[in-house]
Simulated scan of single mutants.
Amino acid sequence: MLIKLLSERYQVVQVLSQGTFCKTYMAEDTYLPHRPTCVIKHFLPSSELSIPVEIRRRLFNRETQALQKLGDYDLVPHLLTYFEDDQEFYLVQQFIAGHTLSTELQPGYCWTQSQVIQLLREVLEILHFVHSHGLIHRDVKPSNIIRRTSDNRLVLIDFGAVKPILTQLVKNQKNLVPIEYSTIAIGTPGYMPSEQQRGRPKPNSDIYALGMIAIQALTGVHPTQLPENRKTGEIIWQHLAEVNVEFAAVINRMVRYHFQDRYKSAKEVLEALLPLINNQDATLLSKFPSHNNLSAYQSHAVISSTISAPLLEKPTSIPETSVIPKNSPLVVGLLIGVVSGLILMVVSYWSLQIISPEPNIQNSLPTPGNINR
């Protein structure tokens, strides 16, 4: 742990992770009231990498420019600031309170297909945003996905390995040909595809990593422990999971060994999942037969309100299905008439009792001699 303040402002309180390319600290901002918590990433530390400071500075500037493109997107940590301190380079990011997906992916514990579909939906949305801004995350793994405490949403963190999608067009006779340059191979075994290991990551390298997380969730087995086909390099996993054929096909295409055989974008994966999502929603709808005639939007609202409504909450208004019919004025009038008639009958009866003489009760009683007659 560092004793001195970084940039004479940030007090490190805990080391979160330590690797060759990046060290991550939890720190307090001493300049602000209540000393809010933030995350500081020590970019390409000189103690771990013997790279000239000029090159590290150039790479650092490129990374900060890439992170600034993400702006204030809610599902990634915000880049608060960045600075150089004694020829070391640091990124200061928003602290996300929650727990990592690693704590939910326990060995031997298998998620359901619907749970994994929801996981894919959330993370693919984030990857679509990141890729649309010309960036590759390069380190999508369970420990870099946080389930945020405030709203239970998944948040993608640790953009210390982010790489711009860079290509250079060079003239080859009459055609313009995109040339891709190799970079440092950054990633995590089990989630890193072959092209990324060679230093040539693609946007669908992140899709491969997410597909491996899905397989890990479905099987309860870490990716490094899954068998591979020796001839094709494809992952063998379906015998360990309970999924339908359509969903297995989507997962298999996400994790193809050759990147050319995978989905090209996160949007393309979401489109492939759409029929499965609709079927999943239809299954949920079948539990509410009274709403089958509603539109898709209304049905979704019915399901959401049914699931999330407090069990003991009192209704604020009488619904149309109440026991009181719509033509209540007529019914009320009839009820008033009936009650009024009954009142008049009672009043008339008691009036007659008062006017007529009291009957001889004794005469009405049977005598011993005529009881059995």
Results as ranks from 00 to 15, higher is better:
Glu8Leu: 05
Leu16Lys: 12
Thr20Ser: 10
Thr20Gly: 15
Ala27Arg: 00
Asp29Pro: 01
Leu32Asp: 03
Cys38Val: 15
Pro45Leu: 08
Ser46Pro: 03
Glu54Gln: 14
Leu67Ile: 00
Gln68Lys: 15
Lys69Cys: 06
Pro77Gly: 04
Leu80Thr: 10
Asp85Ser: 08
Glu88Met: 02
Tyr90Arg: 01
Val92Thr: 04
Gln94Thr: 09
Phe95His: 10
Cys110Met: 04
Cys110Asp: 05
Gln113Met: 02
Val116Gly: 07
Ile117Asn: 00
Ile117Gln: 04
Leu119Glu: 04
Glu125Phe: 03
Val130Ala: 03
His133Arg: 13
Val140Thr: 09
Lys141Gly: 03
Ile145Asp: 00
Thr149Leu: 06
Ser150Lys: 11
Asn152Cys: 07
Leu156Arg: 02
Ile157Gln: 04
Ala161Met: 03
Lys163Gly: 02
Lys171His: 00
Leu176Lys: 08
Ile179Met: 09
Ala185Leu: 01
Gly187Met: 06
Tyr191Val: 00
Pro201Ser: 09
Ser205Gln: 09
Ser205Met: 02
Gln216Met: 06
Thr219Ala: 05
Thr219Gln: 00
Val221Pro: 04
Gln225Val: 03
Gln225His: 12
Glu228Lys: 15
Ala249Gln: 02
Asp261Thr: 01
Ser265Trp: 03
Ser299Ile: 00
Val302Gln: 06
Thr306Phe: 13
Pro310Ala: 06
Pro315Leu: 10
Ser317Ala: 13
Ile318Asn: 09
Asn327Val: 05
Pro329Gln: 15
Leu334Ala: 11
Gly337Glu: 11
Val339Trp: 08
Pro357Met: 08
Glu358Ala: 08
Asn363Cys: 08
Leu365Met: 14
Pro366Thr: 13
